[in-house]
């Protein structure tokens, strides 16, 4: 290896200097990396998931106590002032009827915003009672019943303060994740799964409310059923897409079953005459599709 010069001595040292080999294993306690990985991994994931769920439930309980007026004030400045369109006016009229049927309190006014975006097949409820409906979804509607079911679903979210709940839960999850040295996607994955499971619960309740509203307005739940069946037919469905754990909404079969259960509970038929769309919205189907991209965005 290298030249070994004769070791220099320290002849006048008053003591002996030795170099006994130190036994191994003192500074490294029993190494079982794989066992540690599985045991500690399971415990860590379990503890983290439990904390996340508890914190999420707490946030969900606290949110309804935040006054709705605060939500309205916070949201007010984020909505652009667009010129009123006949579509938007019609939607707001219908929303008012649906809100009345759902017995929405008077201090929770609903404002529908119509977005002429064909790429998004969606509608969303936001803070303060503001609901956005995208043209991509509106084009799919074939009857007023379906549209009413859709609006009822979103209004139910406002009524249950779901948006505020989701907001607080998101903050709680972010705080918890910040405390974790998350070098692996495991913990962000658990965070997502937990928030999505809360979200799915909320969606089921909103679906039930939508069924009830349709039954109250039209005497049957055909509109709600038609809505989900139509959306199910349009969604891309691969094997991996049907992993419910990662989705924020329940599976369509489950949503349809929720509506059916409501029909049975209210003793209303599942089919009936469907009221045609209001005049202003009937021509949307024929309008040119302004979506350029090939895959449509769906949440």
């Amino acid at each position: 290896m290298f030249e070994r010069p004769p070791p220099a001595r320290l002849p006048d040292a008053p003591m002996r200097i030795e170099n006994p080999p130190v036994p191994e294993g003192i500074n490294v306690s029993g190494q079982h990396p794989l066992r540690d990985f599985f045991v500690q991994g399971t415990l860590a994931v379990g503890v983290f998931a439990v904390c996340l769920l508890l914190l999420g439930a707490l946030a969900g309980l606290l949110a309804p106590h935040v006054p709705f007026a605060w939500e309205q004030r916070a949201a007010a400045r984020f909505w652009p002032q667009v010129p009123a369109s006949p579509e938007e006016a019609t939607l707001n009229e219908l929303a008012a009827r649906v809100a009345h049927a759902m017995k929405l309190p008077a201090d929770m006014p609903i404002v529908i915003h119509y977005w002429p975006d064909d790429c998004t097949i969606n509608a969303a409820a936001s803070l303060g009672g503001h609901i956005v409906v995208y043209r991509g979804l509106l084009r799919q509607m074939e009857s007023e019943d379906e549209l009413a079911a859709l609006l009822a679903h979103e209004i139910a979210h406002v009524q249950h303060r779901d948006v505020a709940r989701g907001f607080l839960r998101g903050i709680a999850a972010a705080l918890l994740l910040a405390g974790v040295d998350s070098v692996s996607p495991v913990f962000s994955g658990i965070g997502t799964a937990a928030t999505q499971s809360f979200s799915r619960e909320q969606e089921s309740l909103a679906d039930a409310d939508a069924a009830r509203a349709t039954a109250a307005l039209y005497g049957h739940t055909g509109g709600a059923l038609a809505l989900f069946s139509r959306l199910q037919a349009h969604l891309p469905h691969g094997l991996l897409d049907s992993l419910e754990l990662t989705r924020s909404h329940p599976d369509f079969p489950r949503r349809i079953e929720t509506v059916r259960a409501q029909s049975r509970q209210l003793a209303r038929p599942e089919t009936g005459t469907l009221t045609p769309l209001p005049a202003a919205l009937r021509t949307l189907r024929e309008a040119e599709n302004n979506c350029r991209s090939d895959d449509l965005e769906w949440e």
Partner: peptide, 22 residues
């Protein structure tokens, strides 16, 4: 990567990190 993941787990539970000792 394995050591870092195990350390992330111990970060939640607390205690000795055997992986880093070696």
């Amino acid at each position: 990567y394995f050591k870092m993941t195990v350390a992330a787990f111990v970060n939640i539970l607390g205690g000795r990190i055997n992986a880093y000792e070696t």
